[in-house]
């Protein structure tokens, strides 16, 4: 299992030094769209140094109807430049036919939604010529549907013929906010689909757990990740820090913790 982190411009100088333990990078496609401010040639340089994965935020796979062609074209151009091992997107919607919502929102676990997301995922994978993984999100609402969430994800991955990017932090947050056992949830998933993990410390706001992407990884998340890795063929784990970046030394400690999940001392 490779360990790595989400590429962020605030970390660019440190990442360029090829710090110990960082074997792969996940880049966010939208950060490399025209006008987003990424220096020309940066993707090629990163691809020369690391295994890359391209992660999308805005393809809105859960929106009924056709994918946004402009978004898909931009995403595909980033994939072409980065030549990643695989690509990933969320099981979510960020826009409706009436407008953009700006961020990820949950989809109901229905067979109709399995079909919509799976068809979109297949289309993205075919357009990019890369395998695609689908990621579970944090949701503060619990949507009922015909399927349990885990059955929904299993059916979705089967129908899209894709892997699962299991966000350990999102799972933990949802389990706390909605009162279920995250390990039991993991045991209901088809293990061979779990290809990649995301992890970062959770935040708390009152009684709510949130994904601020701004905290060090808590020990219970490490334990949950270890339990997942023990039962699934996980190929990569990515530290997904977006804000309040610590000193490089602290990031190296976190990366080393992740490496020990699959290679215990």
């Amino acid at each position: 299992m490779m360990t790595g982190l989400g590429y962020r411009r605030e970390l660019a100088a440190w990442i360029a030094t090829q710090p110990r333990g960082v074997e792969c990078l996940e880049i966010t496609a939208e950060h490399f769209y025209p006008g987003a401010g990424a220096p020309p040639g940066q993707l090629a340089r990163l691809a020369g140094q690391y295994h890359l994965f391209v992660h999308g935020l805005g393809l809105s796979l859960g929106t009924p109807g056709p994918l946004d062609r402009h978004q898909l074209d931009q995403f595909a151009r980033v994939v072409q430049a980065a030549n990643p091992d695989w690509i990933s997107e969320h099981v979510a919607f960020t826009r409706t036919a009436e407008g953009d919502l700006g961020y990820l929102n949950p989809v109901p676990p229905t067979r109709e939604m399995v079909r919509i997301v799976a068809e979109h995922a297949r289309e993205v994978a075919e357009r990019c010529g890369k395998p695609i993984l689908l990621e579970n999100i944090t949701s503060h609402v619990r949507l009922p549907g015909e399927l349990a969430e885990t059955d929904f994800l299993n059916e979705l991955c089967a129908r899209a013929d894709c892997g699962l990017l299991l966000d350990v932090t999102n799972l933990f947050i949802n389990s706390r906010n909605h009162g279920f056992d995250p390990l039991a949830w993991v045991r209901e998933l088809e293990p061979r689909r779990i290809t990649q993990l995301h992890i970062v410390g959770y935040s708390r706001a009152g009684q709510r757990y949130t994904d601020g992407h701004a905290e060090p990884i808590q020990e219970e998340l490490i334990e949950l990740a270890r339990a997942i890795v023990s039962r699934a063929p996980v190929q990569a784990i990515i530290l997904e820090r977006d804000e309040d970046f610590p000193e490089p030394r602290e990031l190296e400690v976190e990366i080393a913790k992740l490496a020990r999940i699959s290679r215990p001392d």
């Binding site: 700006g102 929102n105 949950p106 503060h140 609402v141 009922p144 949130t210």
Partner: peptide, 25 residues
Amino acid sequence: QDRPALLHLVPADLEYQAEILLRKR
């Protein structure tokens, strides 16, 4: 067929989900 899911929404949870979008904005 979509009505039960909407009727099932907990107002406080929906408000928090919306607040996440507002904080992103």
